[in-house]
Design a protein around this nucleic acid. Sequence first.
DNA 1: ATTTATGATTCGGA
DNA 2: TCCGAATCATAAAT
Length: 363
Amino acid sequence: MDEQPRLMHSHGVGMAGHPGLAQHMQDGTAGTDGEGRKQDIGDILQQIMTITDQSLDEAQARKHALNCHRMKPALFNVLCEIKEKTVLSIRGAQEEEPPDPQLMRLDNMLLAEGVAGPEKGGGSAAAAAAAAATGGIGADNSAEHSDYRAKLSQIRQIYHTELEKYEQACNEFTTHVMNLLREQSRTRPISPKEIERMVSIIHRKFSSIQMQLKQSTCEAVMILRSRFLDARRKRRNFNKQATEILNEYFYSHLSNPYPSEEAKEELAKKCGITVSQDVIVLTVVSNWFGNKRIRYKKNISKFQEEANMYAARTAVNATSVSAHGSQANSPSTPNSAGELRALIKGCWVLLALLTCQTPETCS
DNA sequence: ATTTATGATTCGGA
DNA sequence: TCCGAATCATAAAT
């Protein structure tokens, strides 16, 4: 390249002995018209150097002439190559960065919440799960549920609208820049590769804007969720029928009021606890029995009336079902390992005997 | 407004 | 992991 200053001052003559640029372009082919080509290049360079001295019209005409010159593509390629080697190699280092973990986290969350992805997906499931925590009895929470769903779908809609807008803006801008660069590539050494690189830079910028949208959408969902979930402490009493069923089980299993998993499920079904998540259903029943046991034990006399009532009812049911020994399933006579374990564990029978409050011992 | 009832949560222990 | 105990928070009763 150190040939260039001399070339520029050579006024297009006497290029012999200075192959330099010409050799680069011609792959060193030495032919009969080799001298002529060198002459050409000298001319071109001379024209470029003096273009600023000319009038505007003259310069335009000259520009056009140069653009159409047969040597132009070769010159363009060389300049692109040089540029590639210098500027772009530096910038190229910071390319191909791995996918942003934060962006992935946001994407996953949006997908999980049903904001992104298919139309009616995990969103309602998440709402159902949250609704289940509010008490989960029957249709009591349907109002809150639909409220949650409505708000979520609102967020969802905004998110998609904005995302589409961003996408469109990104495409428009990309097209614009590409056109601009293509246009400029007539006068500047801009290779297709460089255009491609520019496009990817634009996409990166826009995706960082998209991330902000995702971020704020996630925040909105979190706020909505927390507000909805905070309502879980809003106690919602079981309806009378459900309480009766639970009490019935409790007092008829007073010696061992620890329903198994299956029993819990059945009780939940009978009580009309209809929630998609079994775990929560079981928790609700377990909570009830936990509370009941401890509160019964704490103040047995207070529950005496209730106990008698349910016991009487159970007795009536039992006799109507089978006329003979309803004593068979009487909890006061533990005849299985499970009941004995329960006896040791909670001393329920002992307590009942001491206070003589359970119907089994009083009858 | 205060009290009671009750479903849920937390925490330590077996 | 389940239970008991204590506690929280709120619905329902007073």
